[in-house]
Amino acid sequence: MSTLRIEGLKASIGDKEILHGIDLVVPAGEVHAIMGPNGSGKSTLSYVLSGRDGYEVTGGIATYGDADLLAMDPEQRAAAGLFLAFQYPVELPGVGNANFLRVALNSIRRTRGEPELDAVQFLKLARAAMKSLSMPEDMLKRQVNVGFSGGEKKRNEVLQMAILKPTLAILDETDSGLDIDALKIVADGVNALRGPDFSALVITHYQRLLDYIVPDRVHVLAHGRIIRSGGPELALELEANGYAQIVAEAA
């Protein structure tokens, strides 16, 4: 059971500092929501935690259990249990969805010293996951995210999560672009993983998602800092009043 611990995290793109010192602790078993205005640094935080190139960490730490996340390659972080559902899932023309999922799963299993799944075992697992997410099976045969609608791409992210079974998930606006039924399906997908070993950071603009995935804590990220934290009721307050007042108070 591992805790995500972020202290004084500062990160820049080029000369521009985007994260000005983030402090955040997500204990194992908890789901925390992050809300905040456009451009405040939410996706930047998710990319820095998952190890994307182009971000320079200029201060602070981020650990998951004993692991120093910032010192690891992205694939090592994935093997350590981290999963990022992308705000903008990437298209991979020429790569089949089934092959992609199987290579990802087996890569993680190999790194962990677990036996790999053969094609038959994998297909069984994938079919079950697709069924629980109400996804048509032919999506496995398609190229990754190519020609997928916005909502289908988001669902495909959740499918990957269901198959890779992370212990720490960061969902970056996975609810954006989803219809009402899909929103419930996605929430069910996340809730199915909840347990004492699973924690998540759910980035969203809409309180509605948090009706389905009830968070333990809600944080407001503005201008690269967490300016306010509270219980689920904070999301309702934001929904009613917007960010202006909170941001003004913090300034």
Binding site: G54, E75, A78, V90, L92
Partner: peptide, 13 residues
């Protein structure tokens, strides 16, 4: 670079 990162973020070396 985005495709490369996407694969690595999914655990692919």
């Amino acid at each position: 670079a985005d495709q490369f990162f996407y694969l690595r973020a999914r655990g692919v070396p």
